[in-house]
Design a protein around this nucleic acid. Structure first.
Length: 806
DNA sequence: ATCTTTTTGATTTTT
DNA sequence: TCAAAAAGAT
């Protein structure tokens, strides 16, 4: 294809180990099935690898890279391989490394965003930035937008920054710069969306910053406007590989198409049936259109599934078959038989959680004639994260170890962001957003008014907030105790910044070519000590030490961890760069635990035993999806169901409840319409033989149960005697089981609470019920699992007025 | 400036 | 129901 004929120089450039490998017959090909092999060998021209769930996609992808290297088609730095998540990128790197013995780094293997940052740092000035631009996180972004909304004299309640952020993100996903937003869309946000978008971009430029969307969008802009630069990269990246192509948005699509235009050696891997990020801007259309976009493309289907049993695959195929507009593929497996998918109806959400908890323990013991399955082998996949709570509650009560995936990530926690803002100030004192974040954290007596003064001083002089504060202090424009503390703060930042500059004079280089974390040896630990000093001197650590709330010790722990993480890096700025792009918190625990996570988070994972609770219309498929996106939304929900089922290797249990508490209200539920799509004989319906606990213990023997062996539809469910009984009970609220309790006395002065009907809310301990009153003391049982606390000295106006029932 | 009460509004989430 | 954010009070 492309004429690289300088073969002698080329040969020399390939390390010996790889040349040796090229000489031998390729062992990595022996491991592959015919489809996978075809996908590896089809090197020239566009290739679409349609890889169903569990068909060995990553294996094919990594083998392809190894093949490119081993045959000398490309050197490691001539392959562009992009993924969506850092985890996927890491895994690919590891696997290629393992297959080749060792490879010297593949610099262009990474996420769309990390590759884009590398490109953008080299050409930042073309989009009005400097190469050391910073990457904003969501917090900063919202703060900035809010300022703009206020400045535009808009009611920030009617027009929340969140919404504008979503809109701008949406536009950036579609690769629309402010001028390019079509008029049909511009009406959004009180007709001022594009205007604010424009201002936002200008503000970002003046801050020398960009957001996540910009990383891609700026690259596309540069490629489109500068043919010479584009050509350079096109030559550079001789082969392009893309993972999870079905999740690409328009900007990513353009990015790829521009880069692939020349040689067209692009291999996209994906599965149209697993496109579940439409709400985030992903266009399934990209993968559906592939053959049109790249005429002459080869389409290779990986359909042999190595993960699941026949029954599970049949159920998954049955669901997904209801979607229109698929590229179409049929998963098959050599493994015969296996357990049928189970469909189970429950009385309510708590009952469902109870049943699943029992089932997990049963399988752990090896009952059911299967297994035994350890806790690591079992996962609960929910549609919405609030569903997790019922399981957490139940598992805490029975003492079943679990892990929740997708909680607040480490780097998104309050204390970590605060600490990071301090570091950012130390590295670049002009970082106004960081300044705003921490100028009054810990409390320095600088309230809204003082901060507005600083803003004004900065604006008048056209300088950063830090300089503005300095100016304000110099002319005595600020009084009271705030002044002294502000002085100390400004001096502190100066001192820390000096240390940063002096300890690393070569900052500029470090910023432009940040060392990758794995290649960065911890040379000296000046920056680690500096970080500790900053956190101490700023009073941030003592702020948490003095905090009496239960979460304070954990926060201090996190800060320690943060400082420890710094040791892996060469400098503060290297660390900041890393954190901006890598927001995940991968702590692989060895302990045996059941996993609870959302369906979205489960993509790419597999478990022998999978539970899919909450299959009720409105919850799954989600009402909001259907309302907002109609048929398209429903199809995406269906793909989510497909993803869920195909995570299971051996045993998959779908369940639904007749009653569920939604925002505190009991609602009677209908089974999910997807149940009608689970294919006939492979589904078994069980309603539990009795409801136990939940206040229905006595009724259990009478409750009976039902079993539908053949085809299960919702109609069958309705007609089953078990379901009829559930319906009869509908609206009757089960009595909650008493919780375990623990006594605790609270300092009189620490108490501040107010009463709400027969409930009490306490800022630090949450909601609780009043158990008794003695004099001016109130006994309250708080809801938080396993804690009953005695609150002394409760006083509230309503209480004193005698308006409350207790 | 900060602490206390009321109101609001609530999928999925990488980078 | 329950947090978080806004409004109100000190």
């Amino acid at each position: 294809m492309s004429g690289y004929d300088d073969s002698e120089a080329f040969e020399a450039a390939i390390p010996l180990s790889q040349r040796a490998m090229a000489a031998r017959p390729a062992p990595y090909l022996d491991d592959l099935n015919p489809a996978q092999r075809a996908a590896v060998l089809a090197l020239d021209g566009p290739v679409l690898m349609l890889a169903g769930a569990g068909t060995g996609k990553t294996k094919a992808l990594t083998s392809r890279i190894v093949h490119l290297l081993a045959t000398g088609k490309a050197r490691p730095n001539e392959i562009l391989a992009v993924t969506f998540t850092n985890k996927a990128a890491r895994e690919m790197k590891e696997r290629v490394g393992r297959m080749l013995g060792q490879v010297e780094g593949m610099p262009w293997m990474g996420t769309f965003h990390s590759v884009s940052v590398k490109i953008l740092r080299r050409h930042a000035e073309l989009v009005g930035l400097k190469s050391n631009f910073t990457i904003l996180d969501t917090d900063d972004q919202l703060r900035l937008l809010k300022q703009l909304i206020v400045a535009a004299n808009m009611d920030e309640k009617r027009w929340p920054a969140r919404q504008l952020a979503g809109l701008i993100d949406h536009w950036k996903n579609r690769a629309w710069t402010p001028e390019k937003v079509p008029s049909s869309e511009a009406a959004g946000f009180n007709n001022r969306g594009t205007e604010l978008y424009d201002q936002y971009q200008a503000r970002l430029r003046s801050l020398n910053a960009c957001d996540f969307g910009d990383l891609l969008l700026h690259c596309v802009t540069i490629f489109q406007a500068h043919a010479d630069i584009l050509t350079q990269y096109q030559r550079w990246f001789r082969y392009i590989l893309v993972d999870e192509y079905q999740d690409t948005n328009v900007a990513q699509y353009l990015w790829l198409r521009l880069l692939a235009q020349g040689h067209r050696n692009i291999c996209c891997v994906g599965d149209d049936d697993q496109s579940i990020y439409g709400w985030r801007g992903a266009e399934v259309g990209n993968i559906l259109r592939f053959e049109k976009d790249f005429p002459g493309a080869q389409v290779i289907r990986l359909e042999q599934n190595y993960r699941s049993t026949e029954h599970i695959l049949a159920a998954a195929s049955g669901v997904i078959a209801a979607n229109a507009g698929r590229l179409g593929k049929t998963l098959w497996t050599e493994a015969e038989g296996g357990e049928k998918l189970r469909l189970i109806g429950h009385w309510d959400g708590e009952e469902e959680a109870r049943w699943i908890g029992d089932e997990i323990e049963a399988l752990q013991r090896g009952s059911r004639g299967l297994g035994p399955f350890g806790l690591n082998d079992q996962a609960i996949l929910v549609r919405a994260s609030h569903q997790m709570r019922a399981f957490e509650d139940r598992f805490l009560t029975i003492g079943l170890p679990y892990r929740v995936i997708g909680g607040p990530r480490f780097y998104e926690r309050l204390e970590i962001r605060d600490a990071m803002a301090y570091f950012r100030l130390a590295v670049s004192p002009d970082d106004d957003l960081a300044f705003e974040r921490v100028v009054n954290t810990p409390k320095r007596g600088l309230g809204d008014k003082a901060q507005q003064e600083i803003q004004r001083a900065a604006r008048e002089n056209g300088v950063s907030l830090l300089e503005g504060a300095r100016e304000l202090l110099a002319r005595g424009g600020i009084g009271g105790k705030g002044a002294g503390q502000l002085r100390a703060f400004v001096d502190g930042v100066d001192r820390w910044h000096d240390t940063v500059v002096n300890s690393r004079p070569e900052i500029a280089d470090a910023v432009i070519e940040p060392l990758l974390p794995e290649t960065a040896p911890a040379r000296d630990h000046v920056h680690v000590r500096l970080a500790e000093v900053i956190l101490e001197e700023s009073g941030y650590v003592s702020m948490w030490q003095n905090d009496k709330t239960p979460e304070a010790p954990g926060r201090l722990e996190n800060l320690k961890e943060l400082v420890k993480a710094l040791e892996q890096f060469d400098s503060l700025q290297g660390f900041l760069e890393h954190v901006a792009l890598i927001m995940d918190n991968e702590t692989e625990e060895a302990a045996e635990k059941v996993t609870i996570m959302t369906l979205h988070a489960a993509k790419g994972l597999e478990f022998p035993v999978v539970y899919l609770p909450g299959w009720e219309d409105g919850l799954f498929p989600s009402q909001r999806s259907m309302d907002e996106s109609g048929q398209k939304g429903l199809e995406e929900e269906r793909r989510l169901a497909y993803v869920g089922i195909t995570r299971a290797e051996r045993l998959c249990t779908v369940s639904f409840a007749a009653n569920r508490r939604v925002y505190g209200q009991w609602q009677s539920q209908l089974p999910s319409r997807f149940i009608d799509e689970l294919p006939g004989a492979h589904v078994e319906v069980l309603t539990p033989p009795g409801l136990y606990g939940g206040g229905f213990g006595a009724a259990a023997p009478a409750f009976g149960g039902s079993r539908i062996e053949e085809r299960a539809t919702r109609a069958d469910v309705y007609n089953s005697p078990g379901w009829k009984r559930l319906q009869d009970r509908a609206g009757q609220r089960p009595v909650a089981q008493p919780r375990e309790s623990r006594n605790m006395t609270i300092d009189l002065h620490a108490v501040s609470a107010y009463a709400l009907q027969d409930r009490v809310f306490h800022q630090k301990f949450g909601y609780g019920s009043v158990i008794g009153i003695e004099g001016d003391k109130l006994e309250v049982a708080f809801d938080k699992a396993g804690t009953k606390k005695v609150v002394a000295g409760f006083i509230s106006p309503a209480h004193e007025a005698g308006d409350l029932p207790f």
